[in-house]
């Protein structure tokens, strides 16, 4: 018997614009694999953010819309409310979700919209050239924090997974990373769990993925991955923060 790992059907066979070693490509593939596995390719609708993943609609082989910067959760809300039979997910970066779109993510989560949000956190604005993000780590140098981020004047990195966990409307929260193979598999399982919850009509799921930006971290891709494990996970601890249904089942 032959077993084969191939490109998922839900990922178009095209080259991405991402830099070498960028985590977006891995996350795209994971979403595509899960969509295939759940058999929802023909009823899934994605919302692409403004940021490096803005062209996600060119890579996913299913229906995808753009959204204005930060507004993906509001757009996804409108989609899901209008067509509850569709499986709707928003794909957002850290500037999109945790800076300009803070209101939209918090309120979509608090309303418990029946959508899934995939949050790719690489601590930097990639598309505009490496500026500081709300999730940039203390001391991390960026285009707009040339001396390294200073808590006193620039605040501390925002921990979105922890922030959203407190809302009753949120049913599933996990922070994972794509730093090495077993973490990628965990991220895949988290994406699957969050989408599965939506397929079952059970509410808002959120997956934060720590992802490398080798270009604007100024690191080789392999070193960037180590940086996630060694430094980023200290600020952003990995783990399943919430799964209402698993907790209910355990009780």
């Amino acid at each position: 018997m032959k077993s084969k790992i191939t490109r998922p059907e839900s990922l178009k066979n095209v080259e991405t614009h991402y830099c070498a070693g960028c985590g977006h490509g891995i996350v795209h593939r994971l979403i595509a694999e899960v969509v295939d596995e759940l058999g929802i390719r023909e009823r899934v609708v994605g919302v692409a953010p403004v940021g490096c993943a803005v062209l996600a609609y060119d890579y996913f082989n299913f229906d995808v819309s753009e959204a204005a910067h930060g507004r993906a959760p509001a757009v996804a809300t409108g989609m899901k409310r209008a067509r509850p039979d569709l499986i709707v997910f928003a794909y957002q970066g850290d500037g999109d979700l945790a800076a300009i779109g803070t209101a939209e993510i918090i309120h979509a989560a608090n309303r418990g919209e029946g959508i899934t949000v995939i949050f790719v956190n690489n601590g930097v604005y990639g598309m505009t050239g490496g500026q500081m993000a709300p999730t940039t780590m203390i001391g991390q140098k960026t285009e707009t924090s040339p001396r390294g981020r200073i808590a006193e004047s620039e605040g501390n990195p925002i921990r979105v997974a922890e922030l959203l966990t407190q809302f009753d409307g949120v049913k599933f929260v996990e922070r994972c990373t794509v730093s090495k193979p077993h973490n990628v598999l965990k991220a895949r399982a988290a994406i699957k769990a969050a989408l599965q919850i939506q397929v079952e009509g059970k509410g808002f799921g959120f997956v934060e993925i720590l992802s490398p930006c080798p270009t604007y971290w100024g690191l080789q891709p392999r070193v960037a991955m180590k940086m996630i494990d060694e430094r980023m996970t200290e600020v952003f601890p990995l783990g399943r923060y919430k799964n209402v249904y698993a907790q209910a089942a355990a009780r």
Binding site: R7, P8, T16, Y18, H24, G25, R29, V178, P181
Partner: peptide
């Protein structure tokens, strides 16, 4: 699993 380009079979 690690390939960001999904070009490995």
């Amino acid at each position: 699993i690690m390939c960001p380009e999904a070009i490995i079979e």
